[in-house]
């Protein structure tokens, strides 16, 4: 769902850049109060894994593909503030090294896939799983919502930019991403179940895991 340059007008990408910068800045401030040094290697591994998984487009239907975003995966393991920073790091690398996502659209891509996907997915996950116990159903629904809400945000940015009317872009984007979100849910549940099985201490407090790796 990486928006290229040219899809967003100046007011939209500048606004998105501003909201993203403020959110990431707030996230960094929060992490400086609570992020433990021993979680650093895990942050590296999760970021590397999400980058790799994002390269794997899976076919969905009718000649369309999707790939993992990974925002809820990161948020469920590391917490939402870390997840915002992990996703932003990945999106910056994809933008400047791989030209995946436009340079002017970087703020919007961070907003959609790093901030809105993270918080939208995480809120739903915690609503369904109040103990933060990494319950598969809650993870699946949270992951699905993270993709769909991210697609909704992208649609709004495209429409506000005057690229395409709201009434056209919203149903089309939601249709495809409702399907792609199923893949997101399956991968998120599979990966967390695997980690839970082989390395449960890493996740012993759910999303508040101690990060022992």
């Amino acid at each position: 769902m990486h928006i290229p340059d040219g899809f967003l007008d100046t007011k939209t990408w500048v606004s998105a850049m501003g909201i993203s910068s403020a959110s990431v800045g707030y996230g960094i401030k929060k992490l400086k109060q609570e992020f433990d040094y021993k979680k650093i290697p895990l942050m590296g591994v999760i970021a590397a894994f999400i980058f790799a998984a994002q390269m794997i487009n899976f076919p969905v239907a009718g000649g369309t593909s999707g790939h993992l975003i990974g925002a809820l995966l990161a948020a469920a393991i590391m917490g939402p503030f870390s997840a915002m920073i992990i996703m932003s790091t990945i999106l910056i690398i994809q933008c400047f090294i791989f030209l995946d996502g436009g340079v002017t659209a970087l703020g919007a891509n961070i907003l959609n896939m790093g901030i809105i996907a993270t918080w939208g997915g995480y809120c739903i996950y915690r609503l369904l799983d109040k103990e933060n116990a990494l319950h598969p159903f809650a993870l699946f629904v949270g992951a699905w919502v993270s993709v769909v809400i991210s697609a909704l945000a992208a649609s709004i940015e495209l429409a506000v930019s005057g690229t395409i009317p709201f009434s056209v872009v919203i149903p089309a984007m939601l249709f495809w991403h409702a399907i792609i979100g199923i893949g997101e849910g399956i991968i998120t549940v599979f990966v967390i179940s695997y980690v839970k099985k082989v390395k449960p201490e890493m996740l012993e407090n759910g999303g508040n895991g101690n990060g022992e790796v």
Binding site: V45, A52, A53, M55, H67
Partner: peptide, 27 residues
């Protein structure tokens, strides 16, 4: 654990990525 995690990421990025679908993504 860090090495295993990184190796899994590398296996996906190196050996699986050439077989990813080239269909357009949702957007």
């Amino acid at each position: 654990s860090i090495v295993v995690g990184l190796l899994i990421a590398l296996i996906i990025g190196v050996f699986l990525s050439p077989f990813a679908s080239s269909f357009p993504d949702g957007l």
